[in-house]
Design a protein around this nucleic acid. Sequence first.
DNA 1: CCAAAAGTGTTTCACGTACACCCATGC
DNA 2: GCATGGGTGTACGTGAAACACTTTTGG
Lengths: 229, 229
Amino acid sequence: MPFTYEYPRAALTVDCVVFGFDEGELKVLLIRRDLAPFKGKWALPGGFVNLDETLEQAALRELREETGVNDVYLEQLYTFGDVHRDPRERIVSVAYYALVALGRHTLQASTDAADAAWFCVSELPSLAFDHHKIVATAIQRLKGKVRYQPIGFELLPERFTLSQLQHLYEAILERPLDKRNFRKKILGMDLLVETDEIEQDVAHRAARLYRFDEAKYRRLVKRGFNFEI
Amino acid sequence: MPFTYEYPRAALTVDCVVFGFDEGELKVLLIRRDLAPFKGKWALPGGFVNLDETLEQAALRELREETGVNDVYLEQLYTFGDVHRDPRERIVSVAYYALVALGRHTLQASTDAADAAWFCVSELPSLAFDHHKIVATAIQRLKGKVRYQPIGFELLPERFTLSQLQHLYEAILERPLDKRNFRKKILGMDLLVETDEIEQDVAHRAARLYRFDEAKYRRLVKRGFNFEI
DNA sequence: CCAAAAGTGTTTCACGTACACCCATGC
DNA sequence: GCATGGGTGTACGTGAAACACTTTTGG
Protein backbone atom coordinates (compact mmCIF):
# COMPACT_ATOMS: atom_id res chain seq x y z
CA MET A 1 0.00 0.00 0.00
CA PRO A 2 2.60 2.64 0.86
CA PHE A 3 5.14 3.65 -1.78
CA THR A 4 8.70 4.46 -0.82
CA TYR A 5 11.42 6.29 -2.74
CA GLU A 6 15.04 7.19 -2.08
CA TYR A 7 14.43 10.91 -2.66
CA PRO A 8 11.37 13.02 -1.91
CA ARG A 9 8.94 13.46 -4.79
CA ALA A 10 6.50 16.17 -5.73
CA ALA A 11 2.92 15.14 -6.35
CA LEU A 12 1.74 15.58 -9.94
CA THR A 13 -1.69 16.86 -10.96
CA VAL A 14 -3.47 18.09 -14.06
CA ASP A 15 -5.82 21.09 -14.12
CA CYS A 16 -8.15 22.06 -16.97
CA VAL A 17 -9.37 25.44 -18.09
CA VAL A 18 -12.56 24.57 -19.97
CA PHE A 19 -13.78 27.35 -22.26
CA GLY A 20 -17.30 27.68 -23.57
CA PHE A 21 -19.09 30.38 -25.54
CA ASP A 22 -22.64 31.43 -24.78
CA GLU A 23 -24.72 34.55 -25.23
CA GLY A 24 -21.84 36.36 -26.82
CA GLU A 25 -19.58 35.76 -23.82
CA LEU A 26 -16.51 33.60 -23.28
CA LYS A 27 -17.01 31.37 -20.24
CA VAL A 28 -14.93 29.10 -18.02
CA LEU A 29 -16.17 26.01 -16.22
CA LEU A 30 -15.38 25.90 -12.49
CA ILE A 31 -16.18 23.44 -9.75
CA ARG A 32 -16.75 24.14 -6.11
CA ARG A 33 -14.27 22.32 -3.88
CA ASP A 34 -15.81 20.07 -1.24
CA LEU A 35 -12.49 19.22 0.44
CA ALA A 36 -9.78 21.17 2.24
CA PRO A 37 -7.75 23.13 1.41
CA PHE A 38 -9.86 25.95 -0.03
CA LYS A 39 -13.02 24.01 0.82
CA GLY A 40 -16.04 25.77 -0.66
CA LYS A 41 -13.94 27.85 -3.06
CA TRP A 42 -14.24 27.70 -6.82
CA ALA A 43 -11.41 25.91 -8.62
CA LEU A 44 -10.44 24.41 -11.94
CA PRO A 45 -11.42 20.80 -12.56
CA GLY A 46 -8.38 18.56 -12.12
CA GLY A 47 -6.70 15.96 -9.97
CA PHE A 48 -3.80 13.58 -9.51
CA VAL A 49 -2.13 11.79 -12.38
CA ASN A 50 -2.16 7.99 -12.26
CA LEU A 51 1.04 6.18 -13.17
CA ASP A 52 -0.55 4.18 -15.98
CA GLU A 53 -2.00 7.13 -17.91
CA THR A 54 -0.43 9.92 -19.92
CA LEU A 55 -0.93 13.52 -18.85
CA GLU A 56 -3.51 14.07 -21.55
CA GLN A 57 -5.40 10.94 -20.53
CA ALA A 58 -5.42 12.18 -16.94
CA ALA A 59 -6.83 15.53 -18.06
CA LEU A 60 -9.57 13.85 -20.09
CA ARG A 61 -10.41 11.51 -17.22
CA GLU A 62 -10.71 14.34 -14.72
CA LEU A 63 -12.88 16.29 -17.12
CA ARG A 64 -15.19 13.35 -17.52
CA GLU A 65 -15.35 12.56 -13.81
CA GLU A 66 -15.78 16.10 -12.56
CA THR A 67 -17.81 17.79 -15.25
CA GLY A 68 -19.25 15.14 -17.58
CA VAL A 69 -17.48 16.83 -20.48
CA ASN A 70 -16.46 14.22 -22.99
CA ASP A 71 -15.66 15.14 -26.55
CA VAL A 72 -13.45 18.21 -26.51
CA TYR A 73 -10.53 19.93 -28.09
CA LEU A 74 -7.73 19.64 -25.53
CA GLU A 75 -4.25 21.12 -25.55
CA GLN A 76 -1.47 21.33 -23.03
CA LEU A 77 -1.05 24.87 -21.71
CA TYR A 78 1.80 25.22 -19.22
CA THR A 79 3.21 23.49 -16.17
CA PHE A 80 2.97 25.34 -12.88
CA GLY A 81 5.61 24.42 -10.37
CA ASP A 82 6.03 27.16 -7.76
CA VAL A 83 7.26 25.68 -4.51
CA HIS A 84 4.34 26.88 -2.39
CA ARG A 85 1.49 26.88 -4.90
CA ASP A 86 -0.23 24.25 -2.74
CA PRO A 87 -0.19 24.92 1.01
CA ARG A 88 -0.03 21.20 1.91
CA GLU A 89 3.02 20.04 0.06
CA ARG A 90 4.90 20.36 -3.18
CA ILE A 91 2.50 19.79 -6.04
CA VAL A 92 3.37 20.39 -9.67
CA SER A 93 0.42 20.82 -11.99
CA VAL A 94 0.33 20.36 -15.73
CA ALA A 95 -2.43 22.65 -16.98
CA TYR A 96 -4.52 21.99 -20.10
CA TYR A 97 -7.17 24.05 -21.77
CA ALA A 98 -10.24 22.67 -23.46
CA LEU A 99 -12.77 24.10 -25.88
CA VAL A 100 -16.32 22.78 -25.80
CA ALA A 101 -19.36 23.64 -27.81
CA LEU A 102 -22.12 24.46 -25.35
CA GLY A 103 -25.29 23.45 -27.09
CA ARG A 104 -23.88 20.39 -28.79
CA HIS A 105 -21.77 17.90 -26.83
CA THR A 106 -24.48 17.35 -24.18
CA LEU A 107 -22.45 18.31 -21.17
CA GLN A 108 -23.84 18.17 -17.69
CA ALA A 109 -22.17 20.90 -15.73
CA SER A 110 -22.31 18.70 -12.66
CA THR A 111 -21.67 14.99 -12.22
CA ASP A 112 -19.76 14.20 -9.05
CA ALA A 113 -20.86 15.49 -5.68
CA ALA A 114 -19.46 19.01 -6.06
CA ASP A 115 -21.34 21.47 -8.20
CA ALA A 116 -20.00 23.03 -11.34
CA ALA A 117 -20.90 26.27 -13.10
CA TRP A 118 -19.95 28.47 -16.02
CA PHE A 119 -18.50 31.92 -15.34
CA CYS A 120 -17.85 34.77 -17.70
CA VAL A 121 -14.10 35.28 -17.99
CA SER A 122 -14.67 38.90 -17.08
CA GLU A 123 -16.48 38.06 -13.83
CA LEU A 124 -14.53 35.23 -12.26
CA PRO A 125 -14.88 34.60 -8.53
CA SER A 126 -11.85 34.26 -6.30
CA LEU A 127 -10.19 30.93 -7.07
CA ALA A 128 -8.29 28.30 -5.08
CA PHE A 129 -4.50 27.82 -5.32
CA ASP A 130 -2.85 29.67 -8.23
CA HIS A 131 -5.80 28.96 -10.48
CA HIS A 132 -6.26 32.61 -11.35
CA LYS A 133 -2.80 32.58 -12.87
CA ILE A 134 -3.64 29.44 -14.81
CA VAL A 135 -6.84 30.93 -16.20
CA ALA A 136 -5.01 34.11 -17.17
CA THR A 137 -2.39 32.07 -19.00
CA ALA A 138 -5.11 30.12 -20.79
CA ILE A 139 -6.93 33.25 -21.92
CA GLN A 140 -3.72 34.70 -23.23
CA ARG A 141 -2.94 31.50 -25.13
CA LEU A 142 -6.42 31.28 -26.60
CA LYS A 143 -6.23 34.89 -27.68
CA GLY A 144 -2.98 34.25 -29.46
CA LYS A 145 -3.80 30.93 -31.00
CA VAL A 146 -7.27 31.69 -32.28
CA ARG A 147 -5.79 34.09 -34.82
CA TYR A 148 -3.69 31.57 -36.70
CA GLN A 149 -5.43 28.25 -36.03
CA PRO A 150 -9.07 27.49 -36.76
CA ILE A 151 -9.83 26.42 -33.19
CA GLY A 152 -12.65 28.92 -32.71
CA PHE A 153 -15.05 26.50 -34.39
CA GLU A 154 -14.61 24.10 -31.46
CA LEU A 155 -16.58 26.57 -29.37
CA LEU A 156 -19.56 26.71 -31.73
CA PRO A 157 -22.18 24.13 -32.69
CA GLU A 158 -21.51 22.27 -35.92
CA ARG A 159 -23.71 24.72 -37.85
CA PHE A 160 -23.42 28.38 -37.03
CA THR A 161 -24.08 31.80 -38.48
CA LEU A 162 -21.38 34.20 -39.55
CA SER A 163 -22.50 36.61 -36.85
CA GLN A 164 -22.05 33.97 -34.16
CA LEU A 165 -18.54 33.36 -35.45
CA GLN A 166 -17.78 37.07 -35.50
CA HIS A 167 -19.07 37.57 -31.97
CA LEU A 168 -16.94 34.66 -30.83
CA TYR A 169 -13.82 36.27 -32.26
CA GLU A 170 -14.79 39.62 -30.78
CA ALA A 171 -15.20 38.04 -27.34
CA ILE A 172 -11.86 36.26 -27.48
CA LEU A 173 -9.87 39.09 -29.02
CA GLU A 174 -11.64 41.71 -26.90
CA ARG A 175 -12.12 44.14 -29.76
CA PRO A 176 -14.85 44.83 -32.30
CA LEU A 177 -14.45 43.55 -35.85
CA ASP A 178 -15.89 45.07 -39.00
CA LYS A 179 -18.74 42.94 -40.30
CA ARG A 180 -18.02 43.27 -43.99
CA ASN A 181 -14.29 42.80 -43.66
CA PHE A 182 -14.77 39.80 -41.38
CA ARG A 183 -17.12 38.08 -43.83
CA LYS A 184 -14.93 38.88 -46.79
CA LYS A 185 -11.91 37.39 -45.09
CA ILE A 186 -13.48 34.28 -43.62
CA LEU A 187 -15.47 33.42 -46.75
CA GLY A 188 -12.45 34.20 -48.90
CA MET A 189 -10.54 31.37 -47.24
CA ASP A 190 -13.13 29.04 -48.74
CA LEU A 191 -13.24 26.86 -45.63
CA LEU A 192 -16.87 27.41 -44.70
CA VAL A 193 -19.60 25.61 -46.55
CA GLU A 194 -23.03 27.14 -46.81
CA THR A 195 -25.70 24.73 -45.62
CA ASP A 196 -29.28 24.93 -46.87
CA GLU A 197 -30.51 25.72 -43.38
CA ILE A 198 -31.21 29.02 -41.71
CA GLU A 199 -31.55 30.14 -38.12
CA GLN A 200 -34.82 29.20 -36.38
CA ASP A 201 -37.02 31.13 -33.96
CA VAL A 202 -35.40 34.52 -34.23
CA ALA A 203 -37.34 37.77 -34.14
CA HIS A 204 -35.73 39.17 -37.26
CA ARG A 205 -34.42 38.01 -40.60
CA ALA A 206 -32.93 34.52 -40.15
CA ALA A 207 -29.26 34.08 -41.00
CA ARG A 208 -27.80 31.34 -43.13
CA LEU A 209 -25.99 28.50 -41.31
CA TYR A 210 -22.47 27.45 -42.28
CA ARG A 211 -20.17 24.66 -41.21
CA PHE A 212 -16.39 24.46 -41.10
CA ASP A 213 -14.89 22.08 -43.65
CA GLU A 214 -12.15 20.48 -41.61
CA ALA A 215 -11.13 17.94 -44.26
CA LYS A 216 -10.58 20.75 -46.72
CA TYR A 217 -8.61 22.72 -44.14
CA ARG A 218 -6.27 19.78 -43.62
CA ARG A 219 -5.75 19.44 -47.35
CA LEU A 220 -4.94 23.11 -47.72
CA VAL A 221 -2.51 23.05 -44.79
CA LYS A 222 -0.53 20.32 -46.52
CA ARG A 223 -0.12 22.69 -49.47
CA GLY A 224 1.22 25.44 -47.24
CA PHE A 225 -2.00 27.28 -46.46
CA ASN A 226 -2.04 29.43 -43.34
CA PHE A 227 -5.24 30.23 -41.55
CA GLU A 228 -5.28 33.77 -40.25
CA ILE A 229 -7.86 36.18 -38.92
CA MET B 1 16.25 8.87 4.29
CA PRO B 2 13.45 7.01 2.49
CA PHE B 3 10.30 8.89 1.59
CA THR B 4 6.94 7.21 1.72
CA TYR B 5 3.61 8.18 0.18
CA GLU B 6 0.12 6.75 0.18
CA TYR B 7 -0.04 6.61 -3.64
CA PRO B 8 2.71 5.94 -6.16
CA ARG B 9 4.37 9.02 -7.61
CA ALA B 10 6.08 9.73 -10.90
CA ALA B 11 9.56 11.17 -10.77
CA LEU B 12 9.89 14.72 -12.09
CA THR B 13 12.76 16.00 -14.20
CA VAL B 14 13.63 19.01 -16.32
CA ASP B 15 15.39 18.84 -19.70
CA CYS B 16 16.86 21.76 -21.61
CA VAL B 17 17.23 22.34 -25.32
CA VAL B 18 20.06 24.86 -25.48
CA PHE B 19 20.29 26.68 -28.80
CA GLY B 20 23.35 28.50 -30.08
CA PHE B 21 24.22 30.13 -33.39
CA ASP B 22 27.63 29.78 -34.98
CA GLU B 23 29.03 29.91 -38.51
CA GLY B 24 25.59 30.57 -39.92
CA GLU B 25 24.16 27.42 -38.36
CA LEU B 26 21.69 26.82 -35.57
CA LYS B 27 23.16 24.45 -32.98
CA VAL B 28 22.01 22.44 -29.99
CA LEU B 29 24.09 21.59 -26.93
CA LEU B 30 24.13 17.89 -26.01
CA ILE B 31 25.88 15.93 -23.31
CA ARG B 32 27.07 12.36 -23.45
CA ARG B 33 25.47 10.19 -20.77
CA ASP B 34 27.86 8.43 -18.47
CA LEU B 35 25.17 6.41 -16.66
CA ALA B 36 22.62 3.79 -17.67
CA PRO B 37 20.13 3.81 -19.28
CA PHE B 38 21.41 4.96 -22.68
CA LYS B 39 24.97 5.11 -21.32
CA GLY B 40 27.26 6.66 -23.91
CA LYS B 41 24.40 8.15 -25.88
CA TRP B 42 23.90 11.86 -26.48
CA ALA B 43 21.11 13.48 -24.51
CA LEU B 44 19.73 16.85 -23.45
CA PRO B 45 21.14 18.37 -20.27
CA GLY B 46 18.69 17.90 -17.43
CA GLY B 47 17.94 16.11 -14.19
CA PHE B 48 15.66 15.68 -11.23
CA VAL B 49 13.75 18.55 -9.66
CA ASN B 50 14.45 19.24 -5.99
CA LEU B 51 11.49 19.99 -3.75
CA ASP B 52 12.78 23.38 -2.66
CA GLU B 53 13.28 24.83 -6.14
CA THR B 54 10.87 25.89 -8.86
CA LEU B 55 10.95 24.17 -12.24
CA GLU B 56 12.78 27.08 -13.78
CA GLN B 57 15.35 27.11 -10.99
CA ALA B 58 15.89 23.40 -11.54
CA ALA B 59 16.47 23.98 -15.25
CA LEU B 60 18.96 26.77 -14.56
CA ARG B 61 20.77 24.67 -11.98
CA GLU B 62 21.10 21.70 -14.31
CA LEU B 63 22.37 23.96 -17.07
CA ARG B 64 25.00 25.38 -14.77
CA GLU B 65 26.06 22.00 -13.40
CA GLU B 66 26.16 20.11 -16.66
CA THR B 67 27.26 22.69 -19.19
CA GLY B 68 28.62 25.74 -17.37
CA VAL B 69 26.01 27.87 -19.13
CA ASN B 70 24.95 30.67 -16.86
CA ASP B 71 23.28 33.75 -18.20
CA VAL B 72 20.62 32.67 -20.68
CA TYR B 73 17.18 33.32 -22.02
CA LEU B 74 15.06 30.43 -20.72
CA GLU B 75 11.47 29.54 -21.43
CA GLN B 76 9.28 26.59 -20.62
CA LEU B 77 8.56 24.50 -23.71
CA TYR B 78 6.27 21.55 -23.00
CA THR B 79 5.84 18.75 -20.50
CA PHE B 80 6.44 15.23 -21.75
CA GLY B 81 4.58 12.55 -19.86
CA ASP B 82 4.26 9.41 -21.95
CA VAL B 83 4.01 6.40 -19.68
CA HIS B 84 7.06 4.61 -21.06
CA ARG B 85 9.27 7.48 -22.10
CA ASP B 86 11.84 6.30 -19.54
CA PRO B 87 12.47 2.54 -19.51
CA ARG B 88 13.13 2.44 -15.75
CA GLU B 89 9.99 3.93 -14.30
CA ARG B 90 7.44 6.66 -14.81
CA ILE B 91 9.26 9.94 -15.28
CA VAL B 92 7.56 13.16 -16.33
CA SER B 93 9.85 15.78 -17.76
CA VAL B 94 9.23 19.50 -18.01
CA ALA B 95 11.23 20.68 -21.01
CA TYR B 96 12.73 24.16 -21.35
CA TYR B 97 14.57 25.79 -24.18
CA ALA B 98 17.42 28.24 -23.77
CA LEU B 99 19.10 30.69 -26.11
CA VAL B 100 22.76 31.50 -25.55
CA ALA B 101 25.12 33.79 -27.35
CA LEU B 102 28.17 31.74 -28.26
CA GLY B 103 31.02 34.16 -28.30
CA ARG B 104 29.88 36.22 -25.33
CA HIS B 105 28.66 34.53 -22.15
CA THR B 106 31.91 32.55 -21.74
CA LEU B 107 30.42 29.11 -21.71
CA GLN B 108 32.51 26.05 -21.27
CA ALA B 109 30.83 23.29 -23.17
CA SER B 110 31.98 20.81 -20.54
CA THR B 111 32.12 21.08 -16.77
CA ASP B 112 31.08 17.88 -15.08
CA ALA B 113 32.64 14.56 -15.94
CA ALA B 114 30.58 13.90 -19.07
CA ASP B 115 31.52 15.74 -22.22
CA ALA B 116 29.29 18.19 -23.99
CA ALA B 117 29.25 19.34 -27.61
CA TRP B 118 27.37 21.53 -30.05
CA PHE B 119 25.54 19.87 -32.95
CA CYS B 120 23.94 21.44 -35.98
CA VAL B 121 20.18 20.96 -35.75
CA SER B 122 20.31 19.39 -39.19
CA GLU B 123 22.89 16.77 -38.17
CA LEU B 124 21.81 15.54 -34.79
CA PRO B 125 23.03 12.15 -33.56
CA SER B 126 20.64 9.55 -32.21
CA LEU B 127 19.42 10.70 -28.80
CA ALA B 128 18.44 9.03 -25.51
CA PHE B 129 14.82 8.72 -24.32
CA ASP B 130 12.31 10.81 -26.30
CA HIS B 131 14.80 13.65 -26.61
CA HIS B 132 14.46 13.78 -30.38
CA LYS B 133 10.82 14.65 -29.92
CA ILE B 134 11.73 17.34 -27.40
CA VAL B 135 14.27 18.90 -29.75
CA ALA B 136 11.78 18.83 -32.61
CA THR B 137 9.21 20.58 -30.43
CA ALA B 138 11.77 23.19 -29.43
CA ILE B 139 12.79 23.91 -33.02
CA GLN B 140 9.17 24.31 -34.00
CA ARG B 141 8.56 26.69 -31.10
CA LEU B 142 11.63 28.76 -31.83
CA LYS B 143 10.63 28.98 -35.48
CA GLY B 144 7.21 30.26 -34.51
CA LYS B 145 8.25 32.60 -31.74
CA VAL B 146 11.19 34.26 -33.40
CA ARG B 147 8.82 35.93 -35.85
CA TYR B 148 6.82 37.88 -33.33
CA GLN B 149 9.18 38.26 -30.37
CA PRO B 150 12.66 39.76 -30.50
CA ILE B 151 14.34 36.70 -29.02
CA GLY B 152 16.74 36.19 -31.91
CA PHE B 153 19.08 38.73 -30.36
CA GLU B 154 19.69 36.37 -27.45
CA LEU B 155 21.62 34.17 -29.86
CA LEU B 156 23.96 36.95 -31.00
CA PRO B 157 26.71 38.88 -29.24
CA GLU B 158 25.67 42.25 -27.86
CA ARG B 159 26.96 44.00 -30.98
CA PHE B 160 26.26 42.37 -34.31
CA THR B 161 26.02 43.16 -38.00
CA LEU B 162 22.79 43.20 -39.95
CA SER B 163 24.06 40.30 -42.03
CA GLN B 164 24.62 38.18 -38.93
CA LEU B 165 21.08 38.92 -37.86
CA GLN B 166 19.72 38.07 -41.27
CA HIS B 167 21.65 34.79 -41.42
CA LEU B 168 20.31 33.92 -37.98
CA TYR B 169 16.74 34.41 -39.16
CA GLU B 170 17.42 32.47 -42.33
CA ALA B 171 18.81 29.56 -40.30
CA ILE B 172 15.87 29.48 -37.91
CA LEU B 173 13.14 30.02 -40.49
CA GLU B 174 14.88 27.75 -43.02
CA ARG B 175 14.34 30.07 -45.93
CA PRO B 176 16.32 32.84 -47.60
CA LEU B 177 15.38 36.46 -46.92
CA ASP B 178 15.85 39.42 -49.21
CA LYS B 179 18.68 41.61 -47.96
CA ARG B 180 17.14 44.99 -48.76
CA ASN B 181 13.70 44.11 -47.49
CA PHE B 182 15.13 42.62 -44.31
CA ARG B 183 17.14 45.74 -43.56
CA LYS B 184 14.26 48.04 -44.39
CA LYS B 185 11.97 46.17 -42.04
CA ILE B 186 14.31 45.70 -39.12
CA LEU B 187 15.68 49.26 -39.24
CA GLY B 188 12.18 50.60 -39.74
CA MET B 189 11.18 49.27 -36.33
CA ASP B 190 13.72 51.66 -34.87
CA LEU B 191 14.87 49.15 -32.27
CA LEU B 192 18.47 48.79 -33.38
CA VAL B 193 20.99 51.43 -32.50
CA GLU B 194 23.97 51.97 -34.72
CA THR B 195 27.19 51.81 -32.70
CA ASP B 196 30.34 53.60 -33.83
CA GLU B 197 32.14 50.30 -34.26
CA ILE B 198 32.63 48.13 -37.29
CA GLU B 199 33.55 44.50 -37.82
CA GLN B 200 37.21 43.62 -37.28
CA ASP B 201 39.54 41.28 -39.17
CA VAL B 202 37.39 40.58 -42.19
CA ALA B 203 38.78 40.21 -45.69
CA HIS B 204 36.32 42.67 -47.22
CA ARG B 205 34.50 45.87 -46.37
CA ALA B 206 33.76 45.83 -42.65
CA ALA B 207 30.12 46.03 -41.62
CA ARG B 208 28.67 48.39 -39.06
CA LEU B 209 27.79 46.92 -35.66
CA TYR B 210 24.36 47.44 -34.11
CA ARG B 211 22.85 46.60 -30.78
CA PHE B 212 19.26 45.85 -29.80
CA ASP B 213 17.66 48.55 -27.64
CA GLU B 214 15.73 46.42 -25.18
CA ALA B 215 14.60 49.32 -22.99
CA LYS B 216 13.07 51.01 -26.03
CA TYR B 217 11.41 47.77 -27.07
CA ARG B 218 9.75 47.45 -23.66
CA ARG B 219 8.51 51.01 -23.85
CA LEU B 220 7.05 50.46 -27.31
CA VAL B 221 5.36 47.23 -26.25
CA LYS B 222 3.53 49.11 -23.51
CA ARG B 223 2.11 51.36 -26.21
CA GLY B 224 0.83 48.40 -28.22
CA PHE B 225 3.81 47.85 -30.51
CA ASN B 226 4.15 44.40 -32.07
CA PHE B 227 7.51 43.09 -33.17
CA GLU B 228 7.24 41.11 -36.37
CA ILE B 229 9.60 39.80 -39.01
C1' DC C 1 -45.01 49.81 -39.64
C1' DC C 2 -41.37 49.26 -36.54
C1' DA C 3 -37.41 46.93 -34.53
C1' DA C 4 -33.61 44.00 -35.24
C1' DA C 5 -30.21 41.86 -37.45
C1' DA C 6 -28.76 40.03 -42.31
C1' DG C 7 -26.45 40.89 -46.15
C1' DT C 8 -23.63 43.38 -49.57
C1' DG C 9 -18.90 46.69 -52.63
C1' DT C 10 -15.82 50.19 -53.26
C1' DT C 11 -12.05 53.19 -52.27
C1' DT C 12 -7.89 54.20 -50.01
C1' DC C 13 -3.53 53.41 -48.16
C1' DA C 14 0.16 50.73 -46.15
C1' DC C 15 3.04 47.25 -46.56
C1' DG C 16 5.15 43.11 -48.57
C1' DT C 17 7.81 41.71 -52.47
C1' DA C 18 10.75 41.65 -56.30
C1' DC C 19 14.80 43.25 -58.10
C1' DA C 20 20.55 45.17 -59.54
C1' DC C 21 24.33 47.90 -58.99
C1' DC C 22 28.16 50.52 -56.88
C1' DC C 23 31.26 50.71 -52.73
C1' DA C 24 34.87 49.68 -49.47
C1' DT C 25 38.40 46.70 -47.99
C1' DG C 26 42.03 43.12 -47.72
C1' DC C 27 44.97 40.38 -50.10
C1' DG D 1 42.98 44.55 -59.68
C1' DC D 2 40.17 41.20 -58.01
C1' DA D 3 37.33 38.80 -54.84
C1' DT D 4 34.10 39.38 -51.13
C1' DG D 5 30.48 40.94 -48.82
C1' DG D 6 28.39 45.89 -47.45
C1' DG D 7 25.18 48.99 -48.48
C1' DT D 8 21.32 51.31 -50.93
C1' DG D 9 15.92 52.75 -53.67
C1' DT D 10 11.98 52.07 -56.58
C1' DA D 11 7.93 50.13 -58.75
C1' DC D 12 4.12 47.10 -58.35
C1' DG D 13 0.51 44.52 -56.50
C1' DT D 14 -1.97 42.58 -52.67
C1' DG D 15 -4.43 42.90 -48.83
C1' DA D 16 -6.09 45.53 -44.59
C1' DA D 17 -9.19 49.09 -43.12
C1' DA D 18 -12.79 52.35 -43.32
C1' DC D 19 -17.34 53.01 -44.37
C1' DA D 20 -23.66 53.03 -45.15
C1' DC D 21 -27.59 51.47 -46.97
C1' DT D 22 -31.15 48.04 -48.40
C1' DT D 23 -33.45 43.63 -47.29
C1' DT D 24 -35.91 40.34 -44.67
C1' DT D 25 -38.58 38.79 -40.94
C1' DG D 26 -41.40 38.68 -36.72
C1' DG D 27 -44.11 41.04 -33.63
